[in-house]
Nucleic acid binder design. Sequence first.
DNA 1: TATCGTATACTTGTATACAAGTCAATATAA
DNA 2: TTATATTGACTTGTATACAAGTATACGATA
Lengths: 239, 239
Amino acid sequence: MLAGISYGEAKKTLGEQAYESIREEILSLRLHPGQTVYESDFTRMLNMSRTPVREAVRALSMERLIEVLPQRGMKIALISERQVEETRFVRESLEVSAVACLADKSGSPEVRANLEEALHRSLEEQRRCVQQEDAVRFLHADDQFHQVFLQALGNITLASIVSQMRGHLNRVRMLSLFEPEAMIQLVHEHEQIVEAVLSADTDQAARAMRAHLGRLMEDLPIVKARYPDYFDASDGTAR
Amino acid sequence: MLAGISYGEAKKTLGEQAYESIREEILSLRLHPGQTVYESDFTRMLNMSRTPVREAVRALSMERLIEVLPQRGMKIALISERQVEETRFVRESLEVSAVACLADKSGSPEVRANLEEALHRSLEEQRRCVQQEDAVRFLHADDQFHQVFLQALGNITLASIVSQMRGHLNRVRMLSLFEPEAMIQLVHEHEQIVEAVLSADTDQAARAMRAHLGRLMEDLPIVKARYPDYFDASDGTAR
DNA sequence: TATCGTATACTTGTATACAAGTCAATATAA
DNA sequence: TTATATTGACTTGTATACAAGTATACGATA
């Protein structure tokens, strides 16, 4: 291999690049919920042909982040209260099971050691974000914290489902932009989860995670009131 | 609309047709785990161009039912013990949460009424399959039984994840071809779940479903021993 | 004989051409 | 004026052409 060139980074197909780029545009809200877009917008933006763009669009449409209107274009998915709650429910179920399983296994020294190190590092990073009042970076640190458990569990299928679910939830969180007190509260809840898992208290770990993810969309009504255009008005009726 | 033609059936794109056809070929094992196939096989089989075939292949590859080898072809995914266990874990987590939630709600008369009717009908169908010793039809009835809960819960996101998970598990079940006693045992477990949910006993419903899905892949070692070629030998190492 | 280079016949990845549906503006007719 | 065709400029769905990577057979060379 040529020195310095593509050291370790696997070469991605254009389709994969398109998927990642467009998804990031959607989750960052640079593409607005409800906005009408066309394949041609993406071919121009990414400077590639329709084929890889369509591939990405199909994938995002299966993920329910894009709604394709045949022969008429496509819409960036509105934030749907129903979709958010469905997604939150799935995340709660899977992550509760994950930490319960990990708490069971945390008797084993090598599992425990890896987990402990990674969790404490993540908590430190979160505290730094709080101190610097950097909400966007905190959002990322929060996701990373949860990712630590999924990584440790080693269930790739579960991890990829959860990260897909996070997409829908994070658009809401981007709009809520935490107050410092909210971040402090979240760090506190995280600490309780860590405490329970590392002390191998399965039930307490499950309860703590369930409570934590139960409160995840607590301020959705406020966000919805402030950005009504981004939300699906006909929620609950047809989909 | 022309009388008798496409009465109520939404017109599907070729891509969707290809997805369903190929998926069915894989799950029925008519396409063997590990078998090498090419896009051209599907274009001939389905009499359409590469574009919709590729669309289907991409989707199935995300579902991990097909493994694409760039520039070399593709392989029908081997049955991976790891994949099966990951998938079973996800299903257990989600379905336990689902029945727990339903048991909570089954105090409400209209929820209860709908559920009760559908569940008892499904149990009857299962008993018929046992009586006629029709294992394939039983497999389908079993899936339908679980689907009743997901339908009643009304969480479309959760339901579609579970039905995706079922794909990997059902290839194993197709190979195990139940003995009559095994079917009787499964019906019995189903009855216990129904009993618990309808009597609003949340904990018992969760326990019964967890036990039921915990035993789901009990005979995987036997199947693996009988059909070693269909299984991923390098399981647990790289993926 | 064994090794290496090369041509070739595959494959998938990507770009483009063509078909067909949708919508809005506009011309036409009552 | 109002209702109805009609046209045309869009869109996505589908087919095909082209680019580039991979494996294999085969012949030249040591």
